[in-house]
């Protein structure tokens, strides 16, 4: 059976350090204002007690990618073998419609190349048996690639605050929520 690759983002482990975002930026030599992966602050009372929590997201390699549906040049393909949504920059004419249509605002404009850019799940690395940069460079090992056709990890959720309604494009990303500890607060 074909794979269904997706990110599993462990917010319980994540320290909001942005190393994933910047290592990706460095590897792909992106312009300063561009991101293939974004780390976002979550509401501090999200799980009851006050904590500093962050979530790291990239392209969700959706089952029903909105980017693919709007692109006038057909620059997007969803790989049969693993479901990775690949953006072909050679075709792209930089109309930026995909960035508008993606509920997660994932495709971003490269102001120098004047074309769109998006997380590729580092398929070139995956294809040779290596991990994506953000996965191997996260200091907390908080990001994994999971074949969701193979495993259904327990205790994951498909939505967190700031993450758009998954019913629109059926994103593959799953999250592990923080498990807050006990807090002895000053009175």
């Amino acid at each position: 059976m074909a794979k269904k690759l997706g990110f599993l983002v462990n917010i319980d482990r994540c320290i909001g350090c942005h190393a994933c975002e910047i290592s990706c930026k460095s590897f792909y030599q992106l312009e300063p204002q561009m991101r293939r992966r974004t780390v976002r602050e979550l509401p501090e009372d999200m799980v009851g007690s006050t904590i500093r929590a962050f979530v790291s997201t990239a392209c969700n390699h959706c089952d029903e990618p909105a980017c693919k549906a709007v692109c006038p040049v057909g620059a997007y393909t969803k790989r049969e073998e693993d479901g990775i949504v690949v953006h072909n920059q050679d075709l792209c004419i930089g109309c930026q419609m995909c960035g508008k249509a993606c509920p997660y605002g994932v495709p971003v404009y490269n102001p120098v190349k004047k074309k769109m850019d998006k997380c590729s799940m580092c398929y070139e690395l995956l294809d040779v048996g290596e991990s994506p940069i953000c996965v191997s460079k996260c200091p907390m090992e908080a990001i994994e690639i999971v074949d969701y056709n193979e495993v259904q990890p327990a205790g994951t959720v498909s939505i967190v605050p700031t993450f758009a309604d998954p019913s629109i494009t059926k994103p593959t990303t799953q999250f592990i929520l923080p498990k807050p500890g006990k807090q002895v607060r000053r009175v």
Binding site: E21, S26, Q29, P139
Partner: peptide, 25 residues
């Protein structure tokens, strides 16, 4: 073109913090 952690170092484990990742810049 890329700066990252050294995997031979079991403490660095092939990864850098966010600041280290900005070294090319």
């Amino acid at each position: 073109t890329f700066i990252t952690g050294n995997e031979n170092n079991n403490y660095t484990k092939g990864r850098l913090c966010v600041k280290g990742n900005t070294y090319p810049r």
